[in-house]
């Protein structure tokens, strides 16, 4: 699904990611853990080129998306991202937030339709919008927030915002979703509802890469734990093996602090 080859990332002189190579397979739930400042967010943000890798390649959808010539927007539609601070569009209602990308992409595809005889999608702008609307309502029903469709993000609780952000990324039917500490900015009583939705997604077979400090979630949902320290993955394994028998000194030290 995603193949990372010799990925390096520096900010100025600060070498943050040091030659990372790994493969994320379809259906995997990879949980990335490690001390703060070790480069977890940077790694995740390089996967969808939110940060441009300094060198190395990210193979996704048959292309090296780290190549600046590749149209990254098309690939990002298939690689959702969920942020610590939600990043919902403040000037748009909940349903507009979810519909935005599908409508834009749908209308763009519609324009290209003439060139493509095999096109089977909606035939008019109105149809594009209707389909996006129906899908958005369905997604909102799934998280029990259909009554908030016309509300602005500022009137939602943190947990509600994050759940809307998750379904916003689902609206494009992504093949994989990246989560960067999705529960770190939430009040404790709201962490559960977000993790619940993420578990749901996992059960339905979504490929996920999750940076989190929720060790319970990592143990229960993760299929592979990757432990990052100083820009390298020092250790990786199944949750059973990693949590019960960590090999590296750094991992032992980290686990003793967070467990």
């Amino acid at each position: 699904m995603i193949e990372v080859v010799n990925l390096c990332k520096s900010f100025g002189d600060n070498e943050v990611l040091k030659n990372i190579t790994t493969t994320i397979k379809k259906g995997e739930k990879v949980v990335v853990i490690g001390p703060s400042g070790s480069g977890k967010s940077t790694f995740l943000r390089c996967l969808n080129c939110m940060e441009d890798p300094t060198s190395g390649s990210i193979i996704f959808g048959g292309e090296n998306i780290a190549d600046p010539k590749v149209n990254i927007n098309i690939h990002r539609q298939k690689m959702g991202m969920v942020f610590q601070h939600f990043n919902l569009f403040n000037n748009k209602t909940v349903i507009e937030n979810i519909m935005m990308a599908p409508v834009y992409v749908g209308i763009k595809n519609l324009r290209k339709q003439k060139k493509n005889p095999d096109y089977t999608g909606p035939a008019t702008k109105k149809e594009v919008k209707q389909q996006a609307y129906d899908k958005a309502i369905e997604l909102l029903k799934r998280i029990g927030l259909e009554d908030k469709a016309d509300a602005y993000p500022s009137s939602l609780s943190g947990g509600q915002k994050q759940r809307v952000a998750i379904v916003r990324s689902l609206a494009m039917d992504p093949d994989v979703i990246l989560f960067d500490e999705p529960t770190s900015a939430l009040d404790p009583e709201m962490v559960g509802e977000v993790l619940e939705l993420m578990k749901d997604l996992a059960d339905q077979g979504m490929t996920m890469v999750v940076v989190t400090h929720e060790m319970g979630f990592a143990r229960e949902v993760g299929t592979r734990i990757m432990f990052m320290d100083e820009g390298r993955f020092v250790e990786e394994g199944t949750p059973e093996v990693f949590f019960s028998n960590p090999q590296s000194e750094r991992a032992v030290e980290f686990l003793s602090k967070v467990l």
């Binding site: 969808n48 939110m50 927007n73 098309i74 690939h75 990002r76 539609q77 959702g80 991202m81 942020f83 601070h85 939600f86 990043n87 919902l88 569009f89 403040n90 935005m100 990308a101 834009y104 992409v105 952000a165 916003r168 990324s169 609206a171 494009m172």
Partner: peptide
């Protein structure tokens, strides 16, 4: 404007201009 707004838009595949 919070840079997260731009990131939110780019993350769902919208272009910089849009």
């Amino acid at each position: 404007v919070d840079p997260g707004q731009m990131e939110g838009g780019r993350s769902v595949g919208l272009s910089y201009g849009t």
